[in-house]
């Protein structure tokens, strides 16, 4: 006679059985390829070539002397530094405004959310045409109000900000909705208590809203940073030159992921590209850990 499992034991057994498939699936398509990429990064792995010699850390050494890789790292830093804070502050503002309106709230919510569900590629091309030097909408407006024509995408200093503006615009709706949900969670009683204590609206915002929103802010900062670290589609579509070479004039907008893509699928240097991927992985890991430690302060309510 088999020993009978307790009810709890049986329940968890079923949980494990049901979770096995997704876990297997996850291991096969996520974890194993990741580990395999670590392996590839230690080889000189030319896609075309049949022999793929083990070179240990040579790829990494080469990477640290690669000007384009450094440019990509610097640009990616810029994307995060500008897109994340500006995006979060703007969306928090919009969320607060949306929270205060009562009439047609769902309509405004929809309007704000629409950019997030539109196709990134389509919007990127709209951006590209808007900021075209010749006949672009923005330059026509500038011309109309008497400001000189700007090169925008054709400029090594301006192109990246055009891309950043697109990244912010696209993500704004998502951040706003999350913020709005967070704000709605804050019990009104805190605000009433603060009001009775004579707190001004700024004090209420600073001392009630922000601390209560802390989990939301942490979540969004981590999410936004990771997403921005992996920025690709916008850069690829807004600033691609001729015949598939993307990354803006003189690599002024190239991001790490875009560079990885080019290394792997244009130049077929799989090993080298994997090495860059490993570095990106480490960066994302560090940033995420750092943000969770620093931003996730515990408040006593």
């Amino acid at each position: 006679m088999k020993p009978k499992l307790s009810i709890k034991g049986r329940q968890s057994m079923w949980a494990y059985i049901f979770i096995t498939l997704p876990i297997l699936f996850f291991i096969c398509i996520r974890i194993l390829p990741t580990l395999y990429a670590f392996n590839v990064s230690l080889h000189k792995w030319d896609l075309l070539s049949k022999n793929k010699p083990f070179v240990f850390l040579d790829n990494f050494k080469e990477l640290f002397q690669d000007e384009v890789f450094w440019a990509a790292l610097k640009n990616t830093g810029k994307y995060i530094l500008f897109a994340v804070p500006i995006g979060l502050i703007l969306s928090l503002g919009i969320a607060l405004l949306l929270n205060s309106i009562t009439k047609g709230a769902s309509f405004y919510r929809m309007v704000v959310f629409i950019p997030y569900v539109t196709s990134v590629v389509a919007v990127s091309w709209v951006w590209r045409w808007m900021f075209m030097k010749q006949g672009g909408l923005i330059n026509n407006i500038l011309n109309f109000v008497g400001i000189a024509k700007q090169p925008f995408l054709d400029s090594t200093s301006q192109a990246i900000y055009v891309v950043i503006s697109n990244v912010i615009w696209q993500a704004l709706g998502f951040y706003t909705i999350i913020f709005l949900a967070g704000i709605k969670q804050i019990p009104q009683t805190y605000y009433e208590a603060a009001k009775i204590d004579g707190a001004s609206s700024w004090q209420r915002f600073k001392n009630v809203t922000i601390p209560m929103l802390n989990p939301t802010i942490v979540y969004l900062t981590v999410m936004a940073s990771i997403q921005t670290l992996q920025v690709f589609t916008q850069v690829f579509n807004i600033t691609s030159g001729g015949q598939g070479i993307a990354g803006g004039p003189l690599n002024s907008t190239i991001s790490v992921v875009l560079y990885i893509y080019q290394l792997a699928f244009v130049n077929y240097k799989m090993g080298y590209a994997s090495a860059a991927t490993v570095i990106l992985f480490l960066i994302i890991l560090c940033i995420s850990l750092f943000q969770m430690k620093v931003l996730d302060k515990k408040y006593d309510y």
Partner: peptide
């Protein structure tokens, strides 16, 4: 030997002169 990289080098050189 690498058409893309070769063309990119020349394109970059032209950009350097014209933009920077």
């Amino acid at each position: 030997v690498d058409e893309d990289a070769d063309r990119k080098a020349l394109m970059d050189a032209i950009d350097k002169v014209l933009l920077n």
